[in-house]
Design a protein around this nucleic acid. Sequence first.
RNA 1: CGGGAAGUAGCGCAGCUUGGUUAGCGCGCCUGCUUUGGGAGCAGGAGGCCGCGGGUUCGAAUCCCGCCUUCCCGACCA
Length: 468
Amino acid sequence: MAESALTNRHDDFPKWYQDVVAKAELADNGPVRGTMVIRPYGYAIWERIQSEIDVRIKAAGAENAYFPIFIPESYLSREAEHVEGFSPELAVVTHAGGEKLTEPVVVRPTSETVIGEFMAKWVHSHRDLPLLLNQWANVVRWEMRPRVFLRSSEFLWQEGHTAHATHEDAAAYARQIHYDVYHDFIRNVLAVPVYLGMKTQSERFAGATNTMTCEGMMGDGKALQMATSHELGQNFAKAFDITFQTEDGQSAHCFTTSWGASTRLIGGLIMAHGDDDGLVVPPRLAPLQVVVLPVRDDPEVMSAVRQIADDLRRAGVRVKVDQARGSFGRRVTDWEIKGVPVRCEVGPRDLAEGKVTIARRDSGEKVPVPLDAVVSTVHDTLETQQREILSRAETRLAERTVDVTTIAEASAAAKEGFARVSFDVLRGEGEAQLRTEAITVRCLQRADGSMPDRDDEPGLVAIVGRSY
RNA sequence: CGGGAAGUAGCGCAGCUUGGUUAGCGCGCCUGCUUUGGGAGCAGGAGGCCGCGGGUUCGAAUCCCGCCUUCCCGACCA
């Protein structure tokens, strides 16, 4: 291969990221600072993310609904920590219909408050619980330093909101979502290994009693929070009067949860798996799993290409035929930048031998395959690739997570990746001290890597690092 | 929002210091022919409110002021 079409990842990682976003035709910047235009290929990836997450959410029993984008400003102020947490990044509508509004209207930064209001209306009895809602929506959080997919002023996400009769029920459901929806999707579809853990008090969602996170490691060693689930205790139930009658006729406040994953996952996909040739999309996620690529625009070749694409499509593979416009080399690099997992290259030389060439995006490996074995080989290659993309990411995560015992060591380790350090070392001043170096506690775990129930459990371990 | 860098064709840049023909170059784009097994070649062609607004000047891409946008580093976040 001659020179790359992209900035080299090790020369300038942020520039490389921008190049991939542009050249893989994922997104453009919008005309207003911090907004983004998601292009068809980028949106196709989002639609794959949506459908995989949606099916898991429904399996967990939640139902989709839709709440309005405009929220009365007064709703936000009902929960003190919540409004304090969000007020710096709110977009507020003060004028509409040619007049000044009597009460300003907030563009939702998240929907806890409106949904709380309606939960209060809908929940009367313990028989109405649990109430399990989800919505797919856009939200607005005005960003000072925007970055496409990672931190945009408007982004797309799903936000789940649930109400439960007991703390135990709410805690269990938030964990169920965290493991069975987020962790399962991120690990098994997105092929990103993550640390599951609890946020420290300073990193917690505004108004939550507990925030859980999936922390992934990007190609440059920085952390990305890829999904979060919150226990909100009775904070929002009290602020919005979400009450129900218990079996013995008492009135009680609900325990609520909320949980979300956003278009940031696309940024995570790019930075977790991308290489110097562009995007690498894991097969289970890929909107396009195979591109069938004619070496030249020749009737015999084209007819073979169409036949192979039909066979693959019938076998359930997401496939596209390359139209053979332009040079072969150019077309190859274009599909590589887009990260399509498998190329099936078909030329006269292959056909003369009754074969095609199957090429893997992640390893670059190419093998000749007899025509009648294409479907089964593609199938195997997709599975292998899915497995090995995850395994490479796991190796990086393991190699670049270092066990340390002091703050100075943690700070050094965070230059390359993550540090694992006893939380006792950080309690008090330690966390704040690291923060001055832009290093934060990504999550807290028990010594065996499991999810703590409380942040004051003895023996907790903190995973620290720089983050997006 | 603080510190730094930059905005000239779709993308990447030169020109600005020292104001003065018709604002250039590479890639991409269009047409034609030859090509196509790893970013093709030749020939012809299209494409610019030089980020926006104001000022200085006989004259501004070039000098001055303001604003907007992008990127980097910080404080905030999914």
